[in-house]
Design a protein around this nucleic acid. Structure first.
Length: 672
DNA sequence: TTCTAAGATGTTTTT
DNA sequence: CATCTTAGAA
């Protein structure tokens, strides 16, 4: 088991005497270290698998880790091992302890969009605002939660009108969540921390459950996550964390890379092991990465080296526009695949923002290249998925007014805004949910008989469905429910074409299948898992991937730079190497270039054999052609290692097209 | 209350 | 440009 490790890696695995920090450069085999260490703990240290918890940040990483541990430790021995995301761990804790925290079983989990729409509603109602500060407020609330600052404290700390407003919304928002029997993503960490702080007995129980903890991508932990780890670990110090400050790309969501330093302060006995040998990339690629990241300040110095051979030059391709860029990448992959005798799955295309995948998708389809886009909010942002999720949520948690509103007129139940408004105020006065208000007699006073009747009918129907769901097989009850509301018919009525409706319905089926699958998996691990738990799990997106990954067919992988972290591919294409895009506009504006540089670094270090960077001279934005400047990061790479293509002739062409565009707009403004 | 059509508005990254 | 919002008519 240990024979495949180098001395440093082996040290990291074998040291179990106290807290350990592994500073692992990109491609230095950190996943091997974690997975081997888990196996080592089970086999050599006699720690039971169900007493070990390993946490990461993405489902993808968690899944891969689980898989690799599975290869080292046979089925029985690995039973009950926890390998999950932080959020999943938090969800599990809240699930088991919801009563103490004051939540009812079946509590809803609000995703990003639910949160946004609630905040929007609150701001519309109680505060006069209309600008796009909603996103900002949402971000501020999230930050407060991550820093474990309560609404009252936030109110006290506020230094200007904007912050006072946001803090006031925060207070309202939290009250509403409570009333809805709902939690949001940040609560998944915050509530367990609060629980453990306030209830030493419960903390002790969990400390007995988790004897050893491993944290991957430690530089991405935020204040509350670090505190959660610290609480669980307690005085024992049975902890291994692995991190790399050069790969810290989540500061925007509260990650505190300083936690790397803080660990040493909090645990004076901390041992530090550095992994500096890279087993992934050719030395040219590695040199490019090193040169680039040298422009950033560093907490811990480390020098990555590799024995993988020099490899090919890094290619930089400049194209006319985004269309040409996408096409070039696709044809490039086609020829490369033949020349290198590689498979499609050896290639990955990385980009800064999800929207960039669209053009690529079109071109890939045009050339009939099999591909897979991973990550992105697309699936859960879809209408049909939101609708059904709404039904699922209200099914297990009737107090979820958010879900109630989503679902009430889907399909048409002829209950309009004014009726809902009245129902809302009534429910508010009585401090009950809208669903419960429907069955109250007092309603007749403010609403007409007709309206009340409609509400009652919905109320009865849902109540009946709920009973069916809890008495019979939940999944078939849910299938029946979808049939009951004739969702398929609704889709056909509201879709532009029958094909679109079919595709949407297929998505619904995927959702229900995944729910079934998730439920089964959870019950394998824990008999007490119920349909409510599986639904909450769905919101964390911990399953679509599983399904998709199971048929790990031969496809080109597309993803954002963020979700590429932790992965590797023989051939990597990074598209959109332009100012305002790779150092993203907003980051340039608020001076966050360093994190963007790390992002580029992460992208570059994904490549094993070849790396290709592409850019477009022009790009369409809001329907208008814009000229693009090459990314400053290109200038920060060693020039002698780069092979440029199409750099020179572009400016002329660009100028000509710009001239024509100007002429066109002039013609248009003259009404020609 | 629902439907329609013009208008505005906006694209970072994730659980 | 593509999506979502809002205003006005049926």
């Amino acid at each position: 088991m240990l024979s495949r490790l180098n001395p440093r890696q082996r040290e990291a695995v074998e040291y179990v005497g106290g807290p350990l920090l592994v500073l692992a450069g990109a491609g230095s085999g950190k996943t091997s270290v974690i997975t081997t260490k888990i196996a080592y703990l089970i086999k050599e240290c006699g720690i039971k698998a169900h007493k070990i918890a390993a946490v990461t940040f993405t489902n993808k990483a968690a899944r891969e880790m689980k898989e690799r541990v599975g290869k080292l430790v046979q089925g029985k021995e690995s039973r009950g091992l926890t390998v999950s995301t932080f959020h999943n761990l938090g969800l599990n804790i809240i699930r088991k302890e919801h009563k103490t925290l004051g939540y009812k079983a079946g509590f809803s989990l609000f995703d990003d969009q639910d949160t946004k729409s609630l905040i929007k509603d609150l701001m519309h109602k109680d505060f006069q605002t209309d600008a796009d500060i909603i996103g900002m407020v949402q971000h501020m609330i999230s930050n407060w939660k991550n820093d474990l600052i309560e609404p009252e404290q936030a109110l006290g700390l506020a230094e200007n009108d904007k912050e006072t407003l946001a803090a006031a919304v925060y207070r309202e928002y939290d009250r509403h969540l409570q009333a809805y029997n709902a939690v949001d993503f940040d609560d998944l960490i915050r509530l367990p921390v609060r629980l453990f702080r306030d209830h030493p007995d419960i903390l002790e129980r969990w400390q007995n459950k988790i004897h050893y903890m491993l944290v991957d991508e430690y530089q991405d932990t935020n204040v509350s996550q670090y505190l959660l780890v610290k609480l669980i670990i307690g005085y024992r110090g049975a902890l291994t964390v692995v991190g790399d400050d050069d790969q810290s790309i989540y500061a925007w969501r509260g990650a505190r890379p300083e936690n790397l330093v803080k660990l040493g302060e909090d645990f004076p006995s901390l041992r530090i092991v550095k992994l500096e040998q890279n087993y992934r990339s050719t030395s040219l690629i590695l040199r490019a990465a090193n040169t680039l990241i040298a422009n950033n300040p560093h907490v811990y110095e480390k020098t990555l080296w590799s024995e993988m051979g020099q490899g090919e030059q890094i290619r930089v391709i400049s194209c006319r526009n985004e269309d040409a860029e996408a096409e070039r990448v696709v044809t490039e992959i086609l020829t490369h695949r033949i020349k290198k005798d590689a498979s499609y799955k050896d290639f990955s295309i990385l980009y800064r923002g999800n929207h960039q995948s669209r053009i690529l998708e079109i071109k890939l389809q045009a050339f009939q290249v099999p591909y897979k886009i991973s990550g992105g909010t697309s699936f859960f942002a879809r209408h049909e998925i939101k609708d059904i999720m709404g039904y699922l949520k209200i099914l297990v948690n009737p107090d979820d007014d958010n879900a109630f509103l989503r679902v009430i007129n889907m399909p048409r139940r002829e209950i309009g805004p004014s009726t809902l408004e009245k129902l809302g105020t009534y429910a508010n006065q009585r401090h009950i949910s809208m669903f419960h208000a429907c069955s109250e007699l007092g309603l007749e006073q403010s609403l007409s008989e007709k309206q009340v009747d409609k509400l009652r009918r919905f109320n009865h129907w849902l109540e009946k469905t709920r009973q069916r769901c809890y008495q019979d097989d939940s999944i078939s009850a849910i299938r029946e429910m979808i049939h009951d509301i004739d969702y398929e018919g609704w889709l056909h009525q509201n879709s532009s074409s029958p094909q679109v409706a079919e595709r949407r319905m297929a998505n619904v089926r995927i959702l229900v299948d995944s729910l079934q699958d998730t439920l089964k998996r959870m019950q394998d691990d824990d008999d007490s898992a119920s349909i409510e738990d599986a639904i909450a799990r769905l919101v964390l997106r911990d399953m679509m991937e599983q399904q998709a990954e199971e048929d790990d067919s031969d496809r080109v992988q597309l993803m954002t730079l963020h979700s590429a972290k932790g992965l590797e591919y023989p051939h990597v294409y990074i598209v959109g190497m332009e100012e305002d895009l790779l150092p993203h506009r907003n980051s340039i504006d608020d001076g966050n270039i360093e994190e963007e540089r790390r992002l580029a670094y992460v992208g570059i270090t994904r490549a094993r054999q070849t790396l290709t960077l592409t850019m477009a001279a022009q790009r369409k934005q809001f329907g208008e052609m814009l000229n693009c400047t090459p990314s400053r990061f290109l200038d920060e790479l060693p020039p002698e290692d780069l092979a440029w293509e199409g750099k020179e002739q572009e400016p002329d062409k660009a100028k000509r097209e710009r001239g024509r565009a100007a002429l066109d707009s002039l013609k248009k403004s003259l009404g020609l």
